[in-house]
Design a protein around this nucleic acid. Structure first.
Lengths: 148, 148
DNA sequence: AGAAAATATCATATTAACATGAAGAAAGCA
DNA sequence: TGCTTTCTTCATGTTAATATGATATTTTCT
């Protein structure tokens, strides 16, 4: 639980793979094989990303998919959004409305965690995944990792 | 996405409701009505919690469910575990093995967020939900929240 | 034009989560 | 004992996510 739906995960992995081709068109066939993911299903998934303006697709010989914009400006939230990233402010306990003014029992405790989750998706870019790194460019000194 | 499965959410809400009865037996019927949740489905869910040692059930007149232990020692992780809280260390990109030694592209960035998520579930107790409060040990001054 | 290469789309299958309704079993009480 | 109350279990239904295979459509190359 608490993970991405399979489809969204495919999307991130596929987009990352496409981004690594650096502008070249990449065929669904190749992506599917590289990711070990069902071909036609992936095709449909990529098509959704194309309709969302994240990818561009070309048919026919020499065709395939490529990024519609720079990887550094494409966040995981962008990639995942077409597949239903609708619970940005969603209540852990499933209340239809859960705001600061009318909080559920877990609201305040959940808020911080939800914010972090949200930040992960909206601040991590596809470019970040191409050059994996601890994501701490900050010059702030931090206490040793809170490994409880 | 990224939310609890319906069943786990029912479990947390139901256990909280039961905890609020302070030791009295609570009938499935009442819980189901209070939470607006399907009766028989909830029954099965509560039964799972009973088998997991989290609740105790009694049949017949005057029967129902009650907590098997103190609410302050019962974490959300405990309540949710019987329904598959298996992704404690699960990779965001779905890799079967994703460790510090062989990290996926998102590993380092995800690690911090995953830790926070995990902490939310393992550190929040049912008792915490009975007395909703910001979960901030720090006493920062904030603007008074007048409305309620 | 015709063949080949690629995505796009359609119909259908599979699976797990979620749900419902009815019948079974234990506990208490008259 | 027999009745009622309550959890327990079973059989079945519904829905959404995931997947597959066949076919249609567009593009390029010769």
């Amino acid at each position: 639980m608490m993970t991405l739906p399979q489809t969204a995960e495919y999307a991130i992995r596929a987009v990352t793979h496409i981004a690594s081709a650096d502008g070249e068109q990449v065929r669904v066939e190749d992506i599917a094989r590289a990711l070990t993911v069902p071909r036609n299903y992936l095709s449909k998934t990529l098509h959704q990303l194309a309709r969302a303006g994240i990818l561009e697709s070309t048919r026919g010989r020499g065709g395939g998919f490529r990024l519609a914009g720079p990887a550094a400006e494409l966040t995981l939230a962008d990639v995942v959004r077409p597949f239903g990233l609708t619970d940005q402010g969603r209540c852990v306990l499933g209340r239809p409305e859960c705001r600061d003014q009318s909080p559920c029992a877990a609201h305040w405790r959940w808020k911080a965690t939800a914010g972090q989750l949200s930040a992960f998706f909206s601040e991590t870019t596809i470019a970040d995944l191409l050059h994996p790194r601890p994501a701490r460019p900050r010059t702030r000194k931090r206490r040793a990792v809170a490994a409880r």
